[in-house]
Write a protein that binds this DNA or RNA. Sequence first.
DNA 1: TACTTGTATCGAAGTTCCTCTATCTACCGT
DNA 2: ACGGTAGATAGAGGAACTTCGATACAAGTA
Lengths: 130, 130
Amino acid sequence: MSKQELRVLGQDGVAGCCPGLLTTPLAAEEAAELARVFKALGDPVRLQLLSMIASRAGGEVCVCDLTPAFELSQPTISHHLKLLREAGLIDGQRRGTWVYYRLVPETTDRLASILTRPGGDPLPGPEDRS
Amino acid sequence: MSKQELRVLGQDGVAGCCPGLLTTPLAAEEAAELARVFKALGDPVRLQLLSMIASRAGGEVCVCDLTPAFELSQPTISHHLKLLREAGLIDGQRRGTWVYYRLVPETTDRLASILTRPGGDPLPGPEDRS
DNA sequence: TACTTGTATCGAAGTTCCTCTATCTACCGT
DNA sequence: ACGGTAGATAGAGGAACTTCGATACAAGTA
């Protein structure tokens, strides 16, 4: 179940570090790797799948619980799960007849830190609507 | 320049709040809105454009500086900038002959907070590679 | 072994996306 | 007003994506 999933992340620690995308011009190669992850998030069904998996109490969700939650065919859900897996956002494990997926928090952490401005919260000049 | 750009965000404050995607199952409608923004980030060229705009000192970049930075035609760059603008990630303004783009930090802030786990940084089992 | 259920893979059809060339609009000189 | 430059828009070709039905694989059960 874990072949050579996208290893985009991780290489400079786990979260809260790194160049950042908002501070440094971002090389073409990094951009290509990051784009693959963001592209995986660029679909409503996959966002919902990820959300359902991430917000589950035990940390794991059976595919058999995910498939009936959508009005889509079983192969379609399977395909979306595969894309999320290849993006390094989730990880799957077979136990008996069923397959369980869980969030890979390192990946979402990295995305969060990449989208976080160094300055922190104080927005420059917000509430003008001119 | 500012028609009715995606107003996905904002409705529950500016940043650091909200359900979160990793904590709540995320409704179909929210997923569709969010997916549009992530899809805008799902292209290497747009990521680089956003990065170049966000990391610029003055906070603004002239399109005339962005276009020659890629081996793509001028209309292609213009198209990518339009998608970033419609996603609410950047904002453009014409001054004389030139058009200047700047980051819309509210949007990246929202994405960052959406991808941030409630638990914070302590990853369950960090540096074990078992 | 055969049957049933859960999940993944395989084409195929329809749509969306990326890129281009050609053209148009906006602004600034002279 | 005319010509030149910056940027946006329009339309088209080709690649990539989403979805499906059909089928293959995996793991239990009779």
